[in-house]
Amino acid sequence: MNTINLGMAVVLAVLYSVGFYLLLQRSLMRILIGIVVLGHGANLMLQLAGGPPARAPILGTAPPELFADPLPQALALTAIVITFAMTTYLLALGYRSWVLVGHDEVQDDVEDRRIAERERPEGSMADDTAATGTDDEEDPGSAAASAEPAGTGVAQ
């Protein structure tokens, strides 16, 4: 089992917390940055899993017991390529969203909101809005939720 030094543990903690904080935002661009930061955190953790820094693992340059573990580096390399693909894909998706609906906001489940509205018991706080049948009930967190027709029930 390997131990890691405190500095690296702090860096990991910062990367993970910043990444998850950004993941919780509405804008896809922020989420993208969050995923990139999280990916860095995961890759750094893979590197650290191989133990402390040591000599390059090339036979003949140093005795084998001084070598760094090459496997986590190979794994991290693969993971970096995959995170790169994730980033480009999300960028393309954000652009598509901007072309189609004019923003890149990640919104709530519209149909779910509609059903929750419909099933709300009578006499509750939101009875007024439910009674008037405003199908496109706007989610306070998402300014653009009304940009699409909610509650039509036709998805295809």
Binding site: I35, L38, A42, M45, L46, A49, L71, P72
Partner: peptide, 13 residues
């Protein structure tokens, strides 16, 4: 996926 990657790092460590 990123959680999976973190899990692998922990398992390997």
């Amino acid at each position: 996926s990123l959680l999976f990657l973190s899990t692998i790092a922990l398992v390997y460590a």
